[in-house]
Design a binder for these strands. Sequence first.
DNA 1: TTAATTGCAAACCATTTGCGCCAGC
DNA 2: GCTGGCGCAAATGGTTTGCAATTAA
Lengths: 142, 142
Amino acid sequence: MRMTDNFLEELCKKGNIRVTSQRKIIASVLLKAKEHLDVEEIHKRAKAIDSNVSIATVYRTMKLFEDNAIVTAHNFSEDRTYYEIVSKEHHDHLINIENGEIIEFHNKQIEELQKRIAEKHGYKLIGHKLELYCIPKSTNHN
Amino acid sequence: MRMTDNFLEELCKKGNIRVTSQRKIIASVLLKAKEHLDVEEIHKRAKAIDSNVSIATVYRTMKLFEDNAIVTAHNFSEDRTYYEIVSKEHHDHLINIENGEIIEFHNKQIEELQKRIAEKHGYKLIGHKLELYCIPKSTNHN
DNA sequence: TTAATTGCAAACCATTTGCGCCAGC
DNA sequence: GCTGGCGCAAATGGTTTGCAATTAA
């Protein structure tokens, strides 16, 4: 699915899904934010717009969005789920383990290799997760 | 660290760590099993050897082993942590999403590419996570 | 001896869910 | 008006932790 400002309306056509004020607010929070947000942060920002948004609704909405490929869930930190709005193009993540900063990258060669590896083992590649854990080159931890 | 049958003894030398019967049992369970085990399964197998092993101890021991690079933790299924004993050589995982089966693989080209990508962004690669989610080729889901 | 370790049960904490009320359509 | 969605608060479930008893060294 392509991200547009009115993806909510698109979503509705697919099923019995209503465009509610809460969903609009949560969608706007996601569209505005470029970083990866956890539920707590999404809730905080949504409440800043309208205090009438419960965290249960954020959880339910994120699951709805995830099921409809509007967001992608990540588990960088093991204990918390981070969400990222699906953007035009696929990318992987480089994580600076010194400060948690996340850099997005895309590499066609790696994607191609992955597909080939799957095929070599008799499988068809459906999806993948690639995360690079790094430290800045200048930092000399050896 | 290299995996040996007496890594527990090696571990002890590193700190104030005692070789207890529970730890021996848990270690033997891990050494015996080749698959990835979750805490519940480790606990079940440990209890089969000696019912005197609590799940709290399994959790504590797995953390101890993880901190000491004896096992690696994986979060394939989001809600459960799976552990794998550190083997001689590094590998990544190919996951059959139809039945959860996990195939291990290693590809030098990909490892090399990862290092290069990190460097291109000004980082030094410390670790990575690569998981390929696949379906059997024969299965024609398109 | 004595500090580390364990079992137990309670605490944690992110996430889910039941329910009665509310709101899209 | 009907049905899906919401807020609230309680429940879930994997994981952690306080504490008193136990045990390795």
